[in-house]
Simulated scan of single mutants.
Amino acid sequence: MDIKELLSSFAQLTVFSIMLSMGMALGFTGISRLWRRPSLLVRCIVAAFVVVPLAAMVVTKVVPLSFEVRAGIAAMAVIPGAPVIYRKMLKGPGDAELAGSFQATMALLSVVLVPLWFGIISALYPMDATAALSVVFKQVMTVQGIPLLVGAALAHWLPDLTEEFSEPLNRISNAMLIGVVLMVVVMGLSLVLKAGPLPILAVVLMAAAALLAGHYLGGSDPVQRETLALANGSRNAGLALALITLNFPAVAQEVLVTIASYAVMSGIATKIYTHLYQKQLARTARVQDAPGV
């Protein structure tokens, strides 16, 4: 097993444990929070599964890129809901439960929509794709859908058991997530330097499109808007790598460069966005609190 396969397997196991832990923490009530606001739900789906993939198509059409870079961008574009975003919201700005509902909802929708998008990608590159859509469906369902629903079911029907095991599982999944982040950062920084200016430009444009889509479709409430911008900007690098390994095994190593580049550059873009938006909110608050306003 080479480093690519090891990272892919560990990332899948990490996503599984995090989704199980998140399902136990949110329960069906927390998961369905976004569902109780149909208008916002539709906007979130559009931002995650329509705007970002279309933006990726435009970027890969305009910027001259190799097939490997285009495949990596496409994979990140069609798989929203990074496992890290819920944990970030627990410690920083934003609404953690809303971010969790967004991530859970996108994870469940990914079971259907990701294979659909991969079918489109496979149609565009029929000679390169190898995995059947049923395999992609099974992969997404196994890693995201099943553990999320099992966790929520345990919280609903076995609350005492959930309370006993949720904290140990949370610690284990956090440790695994830290491991994945460290591996991505260690590998990603060196890979980003190798990527070249055009792939970096492409991933920066896509990261900006994802953040802006969540921002402008997130409504007028500042906390909600920031939460959905950050949630939409964070794509699922672990699952993207796993699906690329399944569907395009011949180029998976090269695609890892693009996925790692996006993970690093989107993290930087998120920090910049949060800093600028918090400054804007503070400036607006000062103006509103000024005498005579």
Score class of each variant (00 low, 15 high):
1 M>N: 12
4 K>I: 12
5 E>D: 10
6 L>C: 09
7 L>I: 08
8 S>G: 04
12 Q>G: 07
13 L>A: 07
16 F>A: 02
18 I>Y: 12
21 S>V: 02
24 M>A: 15
28 F>W: 14
31 I>F: 07
32 S>T: 15
33 R>H: 01
36 R>A: 00
36 R>S: 02
37 R>H: 03
39 S>Q: 15
40 L>D: 04
40 L>K: 01
41 L>W: 13
42 V>M: 09
44 C>H: 04
46 V>I: 15
46 V>D: 08
48 A>D: 14
51 V>T: 10
59 V>F: 08
59 V>H: 03
60 T>V: 12
63 V>F: 07
63 V>M: 08
64 P>R: 05
65 L>V: 06
68 E>S: 15
70 R>P: 00
71 A>C: 15
72 G>C: 06
74 A>K: 05
76 M>D: 01
79 I>R: 03
81 G>D: 00
83 P>F: 11
84 V>I: 10
84 V>G: 06
85 I>K: 06
88 K>D: 08
89 M>F: 12
90 L>W: 14
91 K>R: 14
92 G>D: 03
94 G>A: 05
97 E>V: 13
97 E>D: 12
99 A>H: 02
100 G>W: 10
101 S>D: 00
103 Q>F: 03
105 T>G: 09
105 T>P: 13
109 L>W: 02
109 L>S: 08
111 V>L: 07
116 L>T: 12
121 I>R: 14
124 L>Y: 14
127 M>T: 13
130 T>E: 13
130 T>D: 06
136 V>Q: 09
136 V>M: 07
138 K>G: 10
142 T>Y: 01
145 G>D: 14
147 P>D: 05
147 P>C: 04
148 L>D: 03
148 L>E: 09
152 A>I: 10
155 A>W: 09
155 A>K: 10
156 H>G: 06
159 P>M: 06
161 L>R: 00
161 L>Y: 02
163 E>I: 02
164 E>N: 10
164 E>G: 14
164 E>A: 13
165 F>V: 11
173 S>W: 00
175 A>N: 05
175 A>C: 07
177 L>H: 10
179 G>D: 08
180 V>M: 12
181 V>D: 10
189 L>H: 04
195 A>R: 00
195 A>C: 01
195 A>V: 02
195 A>Q: 10
200 I>K: 12
202 A>H: 07
205 L>M: 07
208 A>Y: 03
227 T>A: 05
231 A>L: 03
234 S>D: 05
235 R>E: 03
236 N>C: 01
239 L>E: 01
241 L>M: 12
241 L>Q: 06
243 L>F: 01
244 I>F: 04
245 T>I: 07
245 T>H: 02
245 T>Q: 13
247 N>W: 00
247 N>L: 08
248 F>R: 05
251 V>L: 03
252 A>I: 13
253 Q>I: 06
253 Q>A: 09
257 V>T: 15
258 T>S: 08
260 A>I: 01
260 A>W: 05
261 S>P: 06
266 S>W: 00
268 I>T: 11
268 I>V: 12
271 K>S: 08
271 K>Q: 15
272 I>E: 04
272 I>L: 15
275 H>S: 14
277 Y>I: 11
279 K>T: 11
280 Q>P: 01
283 R>T: 10
284 T>I: 10
287 V>S: 05
288 Q>S: 08
291 P>W: 07
